[in-house]
């Protein structure tokens, strides 16, 4: 065996060495480019920032310290502030919930239109895919600002903006889920003469609903963050309260602290809740089936 392959062995060796050199070169170049990009990018960002990185670094705790110390001296007010900010928090959560519900509903429709084997009009699959890509690409703030101009401030523009993006984002994930669904039940239903909505409802939904739900829950958590941030640019809710509280500056920091606390706890709560529920959905629970 060795005799036979003497000549090819040299070729293998030469080829592998060439490959190694090329790989080292590419690897080296890529690493270098990455390091350069990071370094120069940081330099540019630093230059274009109002305050520099190094001068700002010692002051990084100034503001939190200010807020905390003021909140501490006026800690008696804190429960009141928390209670006052609660309606705004509820509004923020409502915005996220409505946006997620509507977004998920339309995402389900679009995702079915965009999945091979499910689509009622298979020729339009690429069209629906593009539509979802486009909807996903629109940042919430764009729609929110335009709608605030037309509809005035408040929760509705934010909810619509977030829902719009959610349709695209969830639609893509849902259609990935749909693609992995078993087509046999659908064929079975088709053979007994079920129409499209029946086929989807009875053949597809039971298979994919847990996955859909899990993604929608994850999205809900992301949407709460988005809803808070949109409030900051004028769409109401806790973000708006936060903006007001901090723009008053010193003297109102106790209110700001209340909002910070509320927002932090809310996000952590929904973050933990969604990952807990999703874990249960994917791995099942120890006591699930028995009871």
């Amino acid at each position: 065996m060795a005799d036979l392959s003497a000549a090819p062995l040299d070729a293998t060796r030469a080829h592998y060495l060439a490959l190694t050199r090329q790989r080292r070169l590419y690897g080296g170049i890529m690493l270098l480019v990455f390091v350069l990009l990071m370094a120069s990018g940081f330099g540019i960002a630093n230059d274009r920032n109002a305050g520099g990185f190094l001068p700002g670094l010692p002051h990084i705790f100034d503001f939190p310290a200010g807020v905390i110390s003021e909140a501490w001296t006026k800690r008696a007010n804190l429960p009141d502030h928390l209670r006052n900010a609660l309606p705004a928090l509820v509004e923020t959560i409502n915005i996220a919930a409505v946006a997620t519900l509507f977004g998920a509903f339309f995402a389900i429709l679009l995702s079915m239109f965009a999945t091979r084997g499910l689509a009622p009009w298979p020729r339009l699959i690429p069209v629906f895919r593009r539509i979802m890509d486009l909807m996903r690409a629109v940042p919430e703030i764009v729609i929110a600002l335009v709608l605030i101009f037309v509809l005035g401030g408040g929760p509705v523009p934010a909810a619509i903006a977030i829902a719009f993006h959610t349709v695209g984002a969830l639609g893509k994930l849902f259609s990935e889920v749909n693609e992995n669904a078993d087509q046999k039940p659908l064929e079975g239903l088709a053979s007994v003469g079920a129409i499209w909505p029946q086929r989807m409802l009875l053949g597809l939904v039971p298979q994919v609903a847990p996955n859909w739900f899990s993604y929608a829950l994850l999205r809900f958590e992301i949407n709460i963050r988005a809803s808070a941030i949109l409030g900051f640019v004028g769409a109401g809710g806790i973000g708006y309260e936060l903006k007001n509280a901090i723009s008053w500056g010193q003297g109102k920091f106790d209110e700001a602290a209340a909002v910070f606390i509320l927002l932090f706890l809310t996000i952590v709560f929904f973050d933990q809740l969604s990952s807990y529920v999703r874990n249960r959905l994917t791995y099942g629970s120890d006591k699930g089936a028995g009871k």
Binding site: F42, I44, A45, N46, R48, N49, A50, G51, G52, F53, G56, L57, H59, I60, D62, F63, P64, R225, A228, I229, F232, G239, L242, I246, F260, L263, F264, I267, V268, D271
Partner: peptide, 21 residues
């Protein structure tokens, strides 16, 4: 994760000023 981008933005812009960094 819980502090979220919004709060981090507010906190950090106090120290570093507004801007891309």
């Amino acid at each position: 994760r819980g502090v979220d981008g919004l709060i981090w933005t507010i906190l950090l812009s106090r120290a570093f000023g507004p801007g891309p960094m």
